[in-house]
Computed example of a mutant assay.
Amino acid sequence: MYAFLGWLGLIAFGWGAWLFIPGFRVFWLHELAPAWWQFQRMLTGWLPFSLGDLGYVAVLLWVLWQTYKCIRRWINKGWQFRIWGRWLWQMMLATCLMYGWFQLGWGFAYLLPRIQQSFHLQLKSYSRAELQDLAQWLAAATNTNYVQQKPESEANRIAYFRENVIPAAIEAYHQLHLEGATGMYRHPSIKPSLFRTALNYMGIEGYYNPFTGEAQVNTDIPPVLLPFVTCHEMAHQMGFAQEYAANFVGFLAATHAHDSLFRYSAYLDMLLYACNSLRHDGHTDDSLFLHQLWESLLPGVKRDIHEIYAYEQAYAGPADRLVMHVYDAFLKANQQRRGIHSYQQVIALLIQYKKQIKEHG
């Protein structure tokens, strides 16, 4: 009980300091949190498997075991408030422990406008003409950087991911750091997820584990997406919590990579975001514009888009819709008002970024 109350007090102190002591926010962002994130990666980076995934399995098994014991006592001894009260107490303790660990070590990052502070970009509204101009720019860049998939990327995706994608992604962030865009990325901890089959049906390409600092990637996705998804998850490790922020920083890292496949992957992924925005805007002449944009793409680019679409359709179903609803609620609870649609907000940043390129070169 004393430990539980002490932990609650620590959470309350953290929230109070965050809300009422501006200096604590600066200290958390520049000193405490980066040191904690690097320490996490130091502890888990050397492991060839995902410790966080095993932790999720252990927590699930523990919950199921405690629930089974509670139901068994209920059947044997009948209804007793003490039995269910003990179970509720255990669940509350576990939830409180995980929430505190999450919030104090990672959750505050959702409240920080990192993109605005680091890159001086704003989530401004944009016109349809600006969106079309961005889509044309991305299509041209996608064609320019097109590279055919390497045969080994299909033969053994996990080995290809570990031996090719991870080292190139680390080098990409090193290049981004040399240009002064981000801090140094140290102590890599990037793993193929252990739940790849389940992730396919849930529509998840990758995720960051705030409890262990690991970046997990679903290596079953089309290989052309692996470079950008890896850079996206690494952006979370750098403290860019919002999904649009991780998208943008991942895009910057991938487009600064020496490996042309990374540049192609980033431009292609952002092109799909721009096309989705145009498709959902509802303007009558956007269908003609999208048709013309499609016709401008190289045959190899079209094949890759067909592969991505075929992969998504093969696993589409109730599981991915349920997960999207749950994750939408999670994002909204963490100050991302647009929920799952916050990924799409990267378009507003790219339009501003494109203007910066035009103005400053």
Rank of each mutant, 00 (worst) to 15 (best):
Lys124Arg: 15
Leu293Thr: 09
Glu243Tyr: 01
Phe102Ile: 02
Met92Ser: 13
Ala348Val: 04
Leu123Asp: 04
Arg196Thr: 10
Arg186Trp: 11
Glu233Thr: 08
Ala168Glu: 14
Leu97Lys: 05
His291Gln: 15
Ala316Ile: 07
Ala319Cys: 10
His258Tyr: 09
Leu97Ala: 15
Glu243Ala: 10
Tyr68Cys: 07
His280Asp: 04
Pro34Met: 13
Gln175Tyr: 10
Thr197Phe: 11
Ile308Leu: 06
His283Asn: 12
Gly317Val: 10
Asn156Ser: 13
Glu295Asn: 14
Tyr173Ser: 02
Glu152Asp: 10
Leu194Glu: 07
Ala58Met: 14
Pro22Leu: 05
Ala94His: 03
Leu60Ile: 13
Tyr309Trp: 08
Val229Ala: 05
Ser342Leu: 06
Pro113Ser: 14
Gly361Pro: 09
Ile221Arg: 02
Tyr207Arg: 01
Asp53Thr: 07
Asp259Val: 04
Ala35Met: 09
Asn334Val: 00
Ala257Leu: 04
Gln80Asn: 09
Glu163Lys: 13
Cys231Lys: 02
Ser296Thr: 09
Gln237Asp: 01
Trp15Asn: 04
Thr255Ser: 05
Gly55Leu: 13
His291Trp: 07
Met184Tyr: 09
Gln149Cys: 05
Ala94Gly: 09
Ala94Leu: 15
Thr95Lys: 07
Ser265Asp: 12
Gln336Pro: 00
Trp36Tyr: 15
Ile357Pro: 01
Val301Ala: 06
Val57Met: 11
